[in-house]
Structures are given as C-alpha cells and as structure tokens.
Design a protein around this nucleic acid. Structure first.
Lengths: 153, 153
DNA sequence: GTAAATCTCAACTGAATCGGTCGAGCTAGT
DNA sequence: ACTAGCTCGACCGATTCAGTTGAGATTTAC
C-alpha cells in the first residue's frame, strides 16, 4: 500500500532536531553530531536542515571548536506549526487554496470543496500551531517518569 | 515556494468524479467523457481512476453503448474520507504510525511526537469522514441559489 | 601560528513518485 | 457487424525526495 506521508522526512528531522535543542536549552551549544546521534538523523543531511532553520531564525549557530547550535527562541514560544510551515510551505491539503493556484483554479470561489479543504487546513493548524516544543519536552519527561514508576512497582 | 499537496491530484480527481456522479444519481449511467468534461479532468487519466474506484465498490459501470458509471451507494452514505483513504492510503501525516513502519520505528511507543501525529490524524479524519457527498451536493445547490438571489437583487 | 574541530554552502545523484498517455481488447446495443 | 463505450496494464517524462559530497570558512586549543 502507498503509505501517504504528507509531512516530509526533512520536516520530521527538522522538528526532531528543534526538539532536541529545546531539551538542551540553557546548556550551551550542541554539536550537529550530537543532535544527529540523539535523534537518529543522517548527519550530513541534518547539516543542511539546521542551516536552513538558521535562515528562518529558529536556531543560532556557533562556529569553530566547541561550536554547535542553540535554539534561538524560548521553547514555550515556538510551535511545531511554525517549523512545519517553514520547511513544507502552507499547511493546506491542496494547491488550489494557495497563492497563484488559488486564483488560477477554474472554479475559483464557487468550488464546493473549497470549504472542505479549508476546514481540513484549519483543523491541522489548530493541532500544529497549538503545540509548543516546551509541551513536547515536558510531555516526554512525564512519560519517562511514568516508565520509571512502572519499573519500580 | 514548495507548495505542499498532501492530497494527490489523483485523489482530488477521484473525489470530484464521485461528486459529479452524486449530483447525477438517479439519472442513469454517466459516460466517462461527460464526467471528464464537467469536472475538467483529463479523460484517459479519469478512466484509470474510475476503474480503480470500481474495484473499491464505490461506483458501478455499464459497458457498451449507452454505458457509463453510476454511484454504487447513496450519496448520503458515502464520505469523502472513504474515497481519500481508498486512493491515498491511511490519512496519517507520517509513516511511523502506519503498518510495518509503526513497529520498525526506533522509538516505538515512547516517541514524544506520536500523540501529536495522532491528534493531527484524528483532526483530519473528523473533517473528511464527517463530510458526505450528499452534503457537498446540497451545499453546491445552495450556493448556486444564493448567486441567483444575488443577481436578482 | 598551526592544527583540529566545527559550521557553511551549493552542487550533485540515484531512486521513487506523480501525473498522465497509449494501445489493444472486451462488451453491449442497434 | 459496426460502433460507442468501458477495461487493463504497460509505458513515459518530469519532478521531487532523501541523502551525499566536497571544498571552504571560522573559531578554539595548544
């Protein structure tokens, strides 16, 4: 079966990398190689991605020995949606709601599906924009805690 | 810009074709060429799609002269989600929540993103499974009506 | 000041997917 | 038998995707 994957591998790596930086926020710069290892991401590919994210102002870099990357904003103020949108472009499920295609669509304005795609888009945005990396970090910590409790029982 | 389009052109054509058949339900078989024209879909491509949909039991075909396609189920009982899932596969935004990839994921079970992807998937399902073709047809009719009213004012 | 560690940037590549076409055949009505 | 239509699978070119590579710039440690 075809296995749709609307969220590209690159975006997933980007989100995981940012997540890793969020976990380490306040502990200085983290090397690409450490992020790659922690999140199981091909290192040379991750180099591209982090560089790209830097262009978007999401992360900062420190060059030279002891260099690495840092999260440029508080984890509680950075949503998954922002990263996805930066890497993937608009979160719309279809082209005809976006930019030039919007007006070039032959049924512009009176397409019965327009409101459907719009509702889908809004639903996704609500989820992705409503989730910050801080929440993800906290949640992971909680789950880890639960597991420890499980073991100790 | 990259313009993500998680819903493939093929799926959109499929949905539009089914929609067209829903509009014409009760009026006998509709030729591929008529559907293609009404919905601006490349005819030879549409042939594949309808044939595929037939395999899923969504439409029926009549061969020979005066042949064509019919919707196999009441439009009010057929959701957009069913068609999308049939053409695209699972509505999950990522692979690691689906089938084999699910268990082959290195962080199986304790991935902090799992619940995020799950919420996204559920949000999409709610929209797509909650919309029937009957609603779409009715909605289009209403919008047409509004436009007539607009003109007459 | 030089060596080592690290980020930087753009070009490249192989495989897969996508959107679509084509041809040859089958089926039913007239 | 002719014709209008559906059927089925093979085929194709372009794009995208995931990832690699190489050459260079920058900082720190010694």
């Amino acid at each position: 079966m075809a296995e749709t994957m609307p969220i590209s591998q690159k975006s997933q790596y980007a989100v995981r990398a940012v997540f890793e930086l969020a976990k380490r926020q306040g502990t200085g710069a983290t090397k690409i190689s450490d992020i790659a290892e922690a999140q199981a991401i091909p290192q040379r590919f991750l180099e591209n991605i982090l560089n790209h994210l830097k262009g978007g102002g999401f992360v900062e870099s420190v060059r030279g020995k002891e260099g690495g990357y840092l999260l440029a904003r508080p984890a509680g103020d950075l949503s998954v949606g922002e990263i996805l949108r930066f890497i993937e472009g608009p979160l719309s499920p279809v082209d005809c709601r976006v930019g030039a295609s919007k007006s070039s669509c032959s049924m512009y304005g009176r397409c019965p599906f327009n409101s459907l795609w719009e509702r889908a888009e809004k639903a996704l945005e609500a989820v992705y924009d409503g989730t910050t990396f801080r929440e993800l970090v906290v949640r992971e910590a909680e789950e880890c805690q639960e597991r420890i409790v499980d073991f100790s029982i």
